[in-house]
């Protein structure tokens, strides 16, 4: 049951991810990206990490992709999208080479990975629950957690700095 579900969601994820790349209309790309997040959340649920699944949807699908769509709406995504992108041969070759290199790196990285095989007898199914996650974050990974918080603070300060109104004449 779980295995077939996994394969179903995995193929759906890949399909959606491919559709993100090949959709002509950027709004469709965004929608397929949202679907991809959903299927990834389904994977999290299969792994019994419900908190991660919910947070993935809230943060990525609920907030970040809304902003993506928000920006896309301001851009004229009408007819002329095709014409504006110049597709000369050099760009195609460069794109192919870059993509091939990325693919090679991914394959090379995955080649030597040993998959973890948790023992079903000793495996703790509650490891993905909120309480355990919180405990781990605030004990074992305290320093990285705080550093991430500082990073967010820095980016927030930066955003406020950019968004701050300059003194002087205001036009609205």
């Amino acid at each position: 049951m779980t295995e077939s579900l996994f394969f179903f969601f995995a193929s759906l994820t890949l399909l959606c991810a491919i559709m993100v790349v090949i959709s002509k209309n950027p709004v469709f790309s965004v929608i397929f990206l949202i679907l991809t997040f959903f299927t990834i959340s389904a994977h999290y649920i299969l792994l019994n990490a419900q908190f991660l699944a919910a947070v993935n949807i809230i943060v990525y699908a609920g907030a970040i992709m809304v902003l993506f769509l928000f920006v896309l709406m301001f851009i004229n995504t009408g007819k002329n999208v095709e014409g504006t992108i110049k597709r000369n041969v050099l760009a195609k070759i460069a794109g192919t080479v870059a993509g091939g290199l990325l693919f090679t790196v991914v394959v090379a990285a995955l080649k030597d990975v040993t998959l973890g095989h948790p023992d079903p007898a000793t495996y703790e199914s509650q490891v993905g629950m909120v309480e355990n996650l919180g405990k781990v974050l605030f004990t074992k990974y305290m320093l990285p957690f705080q550093l991430v918080a500082v990073l967010f603070l820095v980016s927030m300060v930066g955003a406020v700095m950019i968004g701050k109104r300059e003194t002087g004449e205001q036009n609205f």
């Binding site: 949202i34 947070v55 609920g62």
Partner: peptide
């Protein structure tokens, strides 16, 4: 009765804007 009930509602409601 999921153990992340309120997050579920939050996530679903945040999708409503789409």
């Amino acid at each position: 009765d999921v153990n992340i009930g309120i997050l579920y509602i939050f996530g679903v409601v945040s999708l409503g804007v789409y």
